[in-house]
Design a protein around this nucleic acid. Structure first.
Ligand SMILES: [Zn+2]
Ligand SMILES: [Zn+2]
Ligand SMILES: [Zn+2]
Ligand SMILES: [Zn+2]
Lengths: 129, 129
DNA sequence: CACGATTTGACAACGGTTGTCATGACGATT
DNA sequence: AATCGTCATGACAACCGTTGTCAAATCGTG
């Protein structure tokens, strides 16, 4: 049994931001938002908090084209994302048939410990071209 | 009309490596292979060559979990990959129904300039657990 | 050849992320 | 409420893949 993490002001602040945001955001963006709100939290702490949350599967993480990791508090269960490249706005999507297809392909080729990444990127209707 | 790139020893060497490899490899791995073969090419040049090839869609590029960009000379046309996390061995896969599904989802949600990433990662049958 | 334009490569710089470690905060226990 | 061991924090440096710089080398055209 692992000790529960301590309930610190900083961790609460990061979680609060994630609850407010509806899209994906980078660690640095979250750090900036905290600073703007006056609830300053060290950048290292933001990174660590997000890591812990991601390891516990409390937030989803994905990489954008630039290689930055983006985080978002999603609903539970396996799903994928339709993400606006510009503002981060996100729609959770499910594709049961895709899941089955991916597993079948991997199995047919003798691959073990299989995982898949599937994200759709675009520009949302409220963002300029 | 853009000028054709020059036919230099270095560019030829990088292309030759890509032709030999059957899996994805990082710029640094390719650089190491070249050094081992005695056909040394500067690291910057390897990066630049791969960029040019990727821009011209002559090689595919994807990011692994660690954020490194991996390159591979693939067959033409849109496809996805089943990649061994351990040795890079790769199977090209196609999923027409997935393509249609992704476009439909994006359209239904009013997203423009849509692209998608879909990769399957696992351990291939010739790699240890 | 000779020449101009492109490419190369050693090196520095960049940007996101992770490591370090002295300081401070949490919370279980008195 | 005060004590105390432990964990978390944050300023800073280090890391690592990648990109920028620019003088020198190379290409290929004439
Ligand atoms: Zn899935
Ligand atoms: Zn948007
Ligand atoms: Zn393998
Ligand atoms: Zn596709």
């Amino acid at each position: 049994m692992v000790d529960a993490p301590r309930n610190t002001r900083q961790r609460r602040a990061v979680v609060a931001i994630l609850e407010d945001l509806d899209g994906f955001a980078s660690a640095q963006e979250i750090h900036d938002i905290l600073k703007r709100r006056g609830e300053s939290v060290g950048l290292s702490t933001v990174y660590r908090s997000l890591q812990v949350l991601a390891d516990a599967a409390e937030v989803d993480a994905l990489r954008n084209d630039d290689g930055e990791v983006l985080y978002r508090q999603c609903s539970a269960g396996h799903h994928h994302h339709l993400v606006c490249r510009s503002c981060g706005r996100t729609v959770e999507i499910e594709g049961p048939s895709v899941e089955r297809w991916a597993d079948k392909i991997a199995d047919e080729n003798g691959f073990r410990d299989v995982a898949h990444t599937l994200e759709i990127f675009g520009t949302c209707s409220s963002c300029p071209a």
